[in-house]
Design a protein around this nucleic acid. Sequence first.
DNA 1: TTGAAAGCGCTAACAC
DNA 2: GTGTTAGCGCTTTCAA
Lengths: 368, 368
Amino acid sequence: MVTAARKPETGTPTVYDVAERARVSIATVSRVYRSPDAVRAPTREKVLAAARELGYVPSGSARGLASRTTGILGLCFPDYTDPETDTPGDGDENAATLYADHIIRGMERAARSRGYALLIAASLRDGPTNLVATLAGHVDGFAVMSRTVDAKDLETVSRRMPVVTLAGPAELGHLDNVQVDNRDGQRELTRHLITDHGLTDLAFVGGPADSPDAEERFLGYQDACRDAGLPVPPEPTLRGALTRTAGREAARTLVAGGGPTPGLPQALLLANDQMAVGALEEFAAHGVRVPQDIAVTGFDGIPLGAMAHPPLTTVRQPSRRIGEEAVALLVDRIAAPQRDPRPVVLPVSLVLRASCGCAEPVPAPRRG
Amino acid sequence: MVTAARKPETGTPTVYDVAERARVSIATVSRVYRSPDAVRAPTREKVLAAARELGYVPSGSARGLASRTTGILGLCFPDYTDPETDTPGDGDENAATLYADHIIRGMERAARSRGYALLIAASLRDGPTNLVATLAGHVDGFAVMSRTVDAKDLETVSRRMPVVTLAGPAELGHLDNVQVDNRDGQRELTRHLITDHGLTDLAFVGGPADSPDAEERFLGYQDACRDAGLPVPPEPTLRGALTRTAGREAARTLVAGGGPTPGLPQALLLANDQMAVGALEEFAAHGVRVPQDIAVTGFDGIPLGAMAHPPLTTVRQPSRRIGEEAVALLVDRIAAPQRDPRPVVLPVSLVLRASCGCAEPVPAPRRG
DNA sequence: TTGAAAGCGCTAACAC
DNA sequence: GTGTTAGCGCTTTCAA
């Protein structure tokens, strides 16, 4: 056994220091951490003891370099939140933020259960170059939420490692993709209003035109109108940011007679729950009764909706599952890099509450 | 210029491939990515072009190994959520989960603005060894939320890199620590009830005894009782998990006469908002009027509280700022490893709403 | 401004 | 079961 002559224990301890102290080779130290069972128990103990005394922590970088895998998965998500406000209290957090939180949760949990950690970074206007440079080099696979990374960078990165696109249409055809069935959900919800409640005078408040989710929902709305033989609007009745404030404004516009038709429509469908809650508040303030005077619906299934008055009818999307699916696809492709791209569309579910005219007039406590 | 004989472009491109193609040395390629200004523009362009054509992405591991810094900050947070439920809709998500989400947000944002990415992993019962091994080796600094990492591991890691403890008492005295003034907040809130509303028959529903935050809040409650000359209870009137369900159960117990005194107390203070919202629901179901029959308060300042009926009086904590402070401390210590440990206590603020008897009987829409 | 050469700390063959 | 020996792909002096 030749313990190479090395500088005395200085700075952060390395395998060499541990090996020297435990009187074994560096290979054995390495083995103790990678496959403990491949080392005899007494040897292992010696090594572990030495490591403990030295305060040894294996270098992730060195491991990554030598093994060409890091045990890290990456996620790039959009950052819509206003940096100014630290407002867990006012409830006007952007829905996309909450949504991203759930996806982060889902990914983190799924990743961890498979032995991966999660590296995250929000994309900002300041150029994705930075982003890709920051993240891509450190991970074994990469999930990107819709519209957060430039297609070109995505292309480059995907040549080097598994990449899955999330929560939006597949931007690059050859990549795995996870999305929620926004269109189908909104179609079903609209159909419910038309068929089950017999409403025909509807209005849809869309999101920004560059929000793929919101646009898909509008398409579903159009589908339902078409299916029911109602006029199919080429554009949402109104548009707004996906915030509570924007929902309030939409309702106010309608109440003020600012809509396309003189009176209030029979139903107001909003592109997400945040907006819908805002609309509910505004209607209440103007004495407009929901659902008697107008039915209101949202989309997402956030907790706020269940607490609203009346409780909000909506479409629940499995946001956490998006993250879980992303990890599944990534891990799967790490194992089989050449398999065909797989697009996953997650089903959504209708949540019928009082705001559309369905039961449950009072939020009855469910016994635990 | 000697372009070393290397295997032809195979697998993922490296600096060597880019250097060869751009007819420069690897050192120049490296410079282009680290300090572009140190390279003449034409040279830089050549390199960038070659990199683009090759689909080159710098290896984070190699950079990390060579430079001994990764540009990554780590966060370890507790995972309380029930893996079974994918329930963005039912609103009974654990408060700690939401709380952690905010901290993650805050850290991510602050980290990114300083050029760092964030590596996250929830701690589970399955042993922190894994955690430390997974994360610590990859980061330049490490934030850990209270009770997620074994003190021993923390000790080891902190010998190797900056570590800050979060959202709880400083577990290791020599580390930076960020916490919120739970005690002071609960004291103030309790004082408000006693002094401003003249209530003297109070009950406090605590969290699990192993939740430092909840315990601090109880201490604040005791302080206020002491200050007001009221009897100081040695223990919370009731205890429960920090969930809505637990809050409901607490209220039910009280309504059923299960409390220490026969009737309902004048005020019920709960250790967090989730519980308080549950209590509000249960009281409503039993026809107990809030605040007329009993005042109710929470702690945290979650959006749900503002939507509750009546809107919940609470203490708002700057959860996002915790994450921001953590990053500030970490970055600061990376720059000055030897500076003295700095404990940061973030102030909280009272949010007075209707559930304690303060104004705002109806959630009046605030004009945006 | 650019190049050459020496590691960074580890894993992976392979030998013993 | 354990040791030897090459790298992994970059950054970093130091020269030129």
